[in-house]
Design a protein around this nucleic acid. Structure first.
Lengths: 97, 97
DNA sequence: TTGATAGGCAAGCCACCACTTGCCTATGGT
DNA sequence: ACCATAGGCAAGTGGTGGCTTGCCTATCAA
């Protein structure tokens, strides 16, 4: 269901989060918040980023692993390739539903 | 500015339009309307589709050519590849901004 | 010229989404 | 035990986007 992937990519802040995780994978929520405000100049609150991460996780773009009181976020790029290939088949008969 | 591309891809109806143009390129507005309602079961009005096509054109995903009173819409897949490659560089030093 | 077809413009309505606010739970250090 | 840190939950609010409604322009056929 790539619908959630498109919805997740629709927001600029979420794309910035993906950028941040591309640079440094496995960050915690507070780390992402700090680096977004300092490096990208975003004034987003912690809850806002938390909700964004939830959307990204629901889309399968981010996986989380708990360790103590820390929760690390890892980027998953697999859904990204499939969504675009949907229109990049010029003459493939397999539309696939 | 891939921002408009993501915004354009966020809507399911616009993705269906891209699907339709992938199957048959160079359709008019009325053709797209008819095929969306019959094949995909979408009850979208003509104006709705027209506005969707405007968004797709603003994103560079659709190019139009006028011919008499007809306006044909052609799919342009070039912006699609670039937007995803943004996060698909695992270790490439060229982030490119 | 008249009528029909293909498309455009603009205002208004409504639902969703991002963000805030406030409070709560859990883990770790001392 | 205590407090600080890391994170979660839920209700409320504002703004944007998608859709409608109504009317208008332009091209072609008779």
């Amino acid at each position: 269901m790539p619908d959630d992937v498109f919805k997740a990519l629709a927001d600029p802040t979420r794309r910035k989060i993906l950028d941040e995780l591309t640079e440094r994978n496995g960050q915690t929520l507070f780390e992402i918040c700090a680096r977004l405000t300092t490096k990208h100049g975003l004034g987003s609150s912690r809850q806002a980023i938390s909700q964004h991460l939830a959307v990204l996780e629901a889309a399968g773009l981010v996986r989380t692993r708990r360790q103590g009181r820390y929760k690390f976020h890892d980027l998953t790029t697999e859904p990204l390739e499939q969504i675009v290939s949907r229109w990049l088949k010029p003459d493939a008969p397999e539309t696939g539903k």
